[in-house]
Design a protein around this nucleic acid. Structure first.
Length: 573
DNA sequence: GCCGTTTTCGGCCCGACTGTTTTCAGTCG
């Protein structure tokens, strides 16, 4: 039973309670607890000792009752309350809540009035005109629910950050050019640099809102307009990406930015502090009575509640508010701290650009060192090289090195981890490499124990230096292979192998939670782009984003070190 | 259901838009 499973059960309880019209604060308690649990890297099961979950009560939003329920879930795998609730409300009703515009009250209403339990039944009822006859519903509501159902059937999963960025860019550029637009920021999970985003929140301050709304709702990239008011509009772009626009006065821009950047849990935590200080915090500012005491800049808003400004990447209510209050926020790693890139490919295997092209691009970026990590022979589909191929590459590197001014090229390879955990390169060639990167590229479906054993064994090879993309996931394409991350991290700590944070936008592997676990265990991380083209060296910032979400400082990231120090972080062999 | 340098009871973050209604409930973020 993983934390995510427990969090989902609480979320389900909250949904069912909401449909049943329970006390809203009780519902919120379950939702808050669910968010808390989701954000904790340590498995809750490991926090339960002999004390029946007393340790759990130290977590924010977890009291005696919920601690007890967590213990029950961990011990039995189920929650009696859930079964009890679903006796009164079919669990399938919860799926209706996924339809935008249909909340718990209406879900309950359509169930009671028409016996509707599923989205299919809801669609049929709406199409037949039965929905509009329910008291409180009307033709317009019926039509909008019908549209929402059709939309939701098209809707994919959350888009990767870079996909959403590309889709929304033309719209954002048009908005910036509207006369009277003073400031514009994308807030929400985009600003917090989550790996995927559900929608985009654009915040604008403008002397005259009307032309901003006009440009927004009439932009050629807009597929449908969902809502359009004086200060708030909502549209849908391709791939069902919803974009919300808020227009606020310049005096409120900072407060609005704080408000709409979220996360919700972070916002609640900060507003609760404001309330305790006798202040009110909303998207228009910080107020003492009717007097606005802050609002123009985000820094002012935090200062008004006695907190140093908190970087957006930390705003998940995972302890950042407490850290800020105590003056102990981390100095997060930045792209400018990165001195080298330890994974990239060339035309020698599956890269699209030559060794020289990659090296020159890296030198232009100001890096001190790079590792060239072409694939080894078992990865035929990626043009993996034999030992002879690597020898030829070594000569090419030595020749090129003489012509470079500041960049050092490290001889490296992305050595395939074979099914039994051995490495796909002979010992002599391994010994000639400056850095040995190891990675799994096959047999993803091995059982968790076998997969973990395989990787740990490879890490124990004395030549291994860096474990690349440790879970093998590709966002929205391939689930991570089953692997016990705690054992991988323990093996890294024991062996001195560095763990990679792969910065490829569809990988981001390790993710933020795993990276935080590694950091807490004292394991050093490496952020690498895994570039296959020159411009993909720019992906470094996506890896840095995730490292920042994991509270990483430069000291936690090995490739922030100058080359000599970086070499010292590599294990002796 | 959680929480506590005003409290172990009585609070709990806040506002915009839509549709249906006639003063507001529902939903969303």
């Amino acid at each position: 039973m993983e934390n995510r499973d427990i969090a989902r059960m609480f979320e389900r309880v909250a949904d069912l309670l909401e449909i049943q019209g329970a006390n809203p604060f009780r519902i919120r308690a379950y939702r808050t607890a669910s968010l808390t649990i989701e954000g904790i890297a340590t498995p809750l099961a490991s926090l339960i000792g002999q004390d029946d979950g007393k340790a759990l009560q130290k977590l924010p939003g977890i009291g005696k009752d919920l601690a007890g329920k967590i213990v029950t879930i961990v011990r039995t795998g189920s929650l009696p309350l859930l079964a009890e609730l679903s006796r009164h409300t079919p669990e399938s009703l919860v799926t209706l809540l996924q339809i935008p515009g249909l909340g718990p009250k209406r879900a309950k209403l359509v169930h009671e009035a028409l016996g509707v339990e599923t989205i299919d039944q809801l669609q049929a009822a709406a199409a037949a005109g039965r929905l509009g006859r329910i008291r409180g519903f009307g033709k317009a509501t019926e039509q909008s629910i019908l549209r929402a159902i059709e939309q939701s059937r098209l809707k994919q999963v959350r888009l990767r950050l870079t996909e959403a960025e590309a889709i929304v860019r033309p719209l954002v550029e048009s908005l910036r050019r509207v006369p009277g637009v003073e400031r514009l920021e994308i807030a929400g999970s985009f600003r917090r640099r989550l790996e995927t985003v559900g929608d985009i929140d654009i915040l604008v301050s403008a002397s005259d809102p009307a032309p901003v709304v006009d440009t927004f709702t009439r932009h050629p990239s807009v597929v449908t307009v969902q809502a359009s008011g004086d200060t708030k509009c909502s549209v849908v772009l391709r791939r069902s990406l919803q974009v919300d626009l808020r227009i606020v006065p310049a005096d409120s821009f900072g407060a609005a930015l704080q408000y709409f950047t979220g996360s919700q849990a972070h916002g609640v935590a900060v507003r609760t502090i404001a309330v305790k200080r006798g202040l009110k915090l909303n998207e228009y500012g910080v107020f003492r009575g009717d007097e606005r005491i802050a609002g123009r800049e985000e820094e002012d808003v935090y200062r008004a509640v006695d907190l140093p400004w908190i970087p957006p990447e930390l705003r998940e209510n995972r302890g950042e508010v407490e850290a800020s209050a105590a003056g102990r926020l981390p100095r997060l790693v930045e792209v400018a701290d990165i001195r080298g890139d330890l994974q990239m490919h060339t035309t020698s295997s599956d890269g699209r650009h030559t060794l020289e092209q990659m090296a020159v691009t890296a030198e232009t970026r100001g890096y001190d060192y790079i590792g060239i990590t072409d694939h080894t022979q078992s990865l035929r589909i990626a043009g993996g090289m034999s030992a002879d191929g690597f020898r030829r590459q070594f000569h090419a590197i030595e020749a090129l090195q003489k012509r470079l001014e500041t960049l050092t090229i490290l001889k490296s390879a992305e050595v395939d981890i074979l099914e039994d955990g051995s490495l796909d390169l002979d010992e002599a060639t391994l010994a000639e490499l400056d850095v040995v990167v190891i990675a799994v590229h096959s047999r993803f479906q091995l059982p968790k124990e076998a997969q973990t054993r395989r990787i740990v064994r490879a890490m124990q090879h004395p030549a291994a230096n860096i474990l690349a993309h440790p879970t093998g996931r590709r966002l929205n394409r391939r689930e991570p292979y089953p692997v016990e991350m705690r054992e991988i991290i323990a093996a890294a700590r024991d062996s001195g192998v560095l763990l990679e944070m792969n910065a490829t936008p569809e990988r981001l592997d390790l993710n933020d939670a795993h990276a935080a676990m590694a950091r807490e265990a004292g394991v050093k991380l490496v952020i690498s782009t895994d570039a296959h083209r020159m411009h993909e060296l720019d992906w470094m910032r996506h890896g840095v984003d995730q490292a920042r979400r994991a509270w990483c400082e430069p000291q936690h990231i090995a490739n922030t070190r100058p080359l000599a120090e970086f070499r010292k972080l590599l294990r002796k062999r």
